[in-house]
């Protein structure tokens, strides 16, 4: 079953075609490493798959929903870790995650296990997010993805800013998500590390896919 299906997909940032005719098909359970130089269009590709960007031309389906007409339905079913953490500085770790769970119509009971899994439960849960380090914020944002148990994980530089244990944790999350049947697209400059996780590697350059290699892991 195709989780991601893009055909001649064009997405603009302002007037600039950040994606200039992308064809991509990703099946259920795949772990796809998206690699490429800065500004190649990796983040745009992930945001498009999350339903956060408008498809300017071409066609696409994510989790069976049309990218042109059903973006709200797509957004509700994906988990996106972007460059920013999308957290409220003045709320505590727990309050951020509980708000996120309630807004997403997810069981609030999933918050505690997610915080423990990401190592932000014991000392940090009542601390305002604004007081956390960049790496700790990243862990909280990842906990937000875990809380939703998405069918499609979209991780943009998930290892960035994390200490070695945090990076191992990301690897474990990706492995477990794939084992549970979820599909993962992750962009990373840490190619050696992520090649071990990935089942497939695509290369993005100039807003198009220039390479696609299966069974890389």
């Amino acid at each position: 079953m195709s989780i991601v299906r893009l055909h001649a997909a064009v997405a603009l940032i302002g007037r600039f075609p950040a994606l200039a005719g992308v064809d991509l098909q990703v099946s259920s359970g795949e772990v796809v490493l998206v690699q490429g130089p800065n500004g190649a269009g990796k983040s745009t590709l992930l945001r498009l798959c999350a339903g956060l960007m408008r498809l300017e031309s071409g066609s696409g389906e994510i989790l069976g929903h049309d990218l042109m007409t059903e973006r709200p339905a797509i957004r509700r079913q994906v988990g996106l870790l972007g460059h920013d953490t999308a957290l409220y500085d003045d709320l505590s770790v727990r309050e951020n995650l509980e708000f996120w769970a309630r807004a997403s119509r997810v069981d609030v009971g999933a918050v505690d296990p997610a915080m423990e899994r990401l190592g932000v439960a014991e000392r940090l849960h009542d601390i305002s997010v604004g007081q956390l380090s960049a790496g700790q914020r990243r862990r909280v944002a990842l906990a937000g993805v875990v809380v939703r148990r998405p069918q499609l994980w979209l991780l943009d530089e998930p290892h960035a800013g994390l200490d070695p244990s945090g990076r191992d944790l990301v690897d474990r999350l990706v492995i477990d998500a794939a084992a549970a049947g979820a599909t993962v697209l992750l962009s990373s400059h840490e190619v050696d590390r992520t090649l071990d996780l990935a089942t497939r590697r695509i290369t993005v350059a100039g807003g198009t896919i220039t390479g696609d290699v299966d069974d890389v892991g």
Binding site: L80, H83, A86, W100, S104
Partner: peptide, 14 residues
């Protein structure tokens, strides 16, 4: 607008 929090509202489907 701080730290892309608006994105969370969109993704949550509120």
């Amino acid at each position: 607008t701080t730290d892309g929090a608006r994105r969370a509202l969109l993704l949550a489907g509120v």
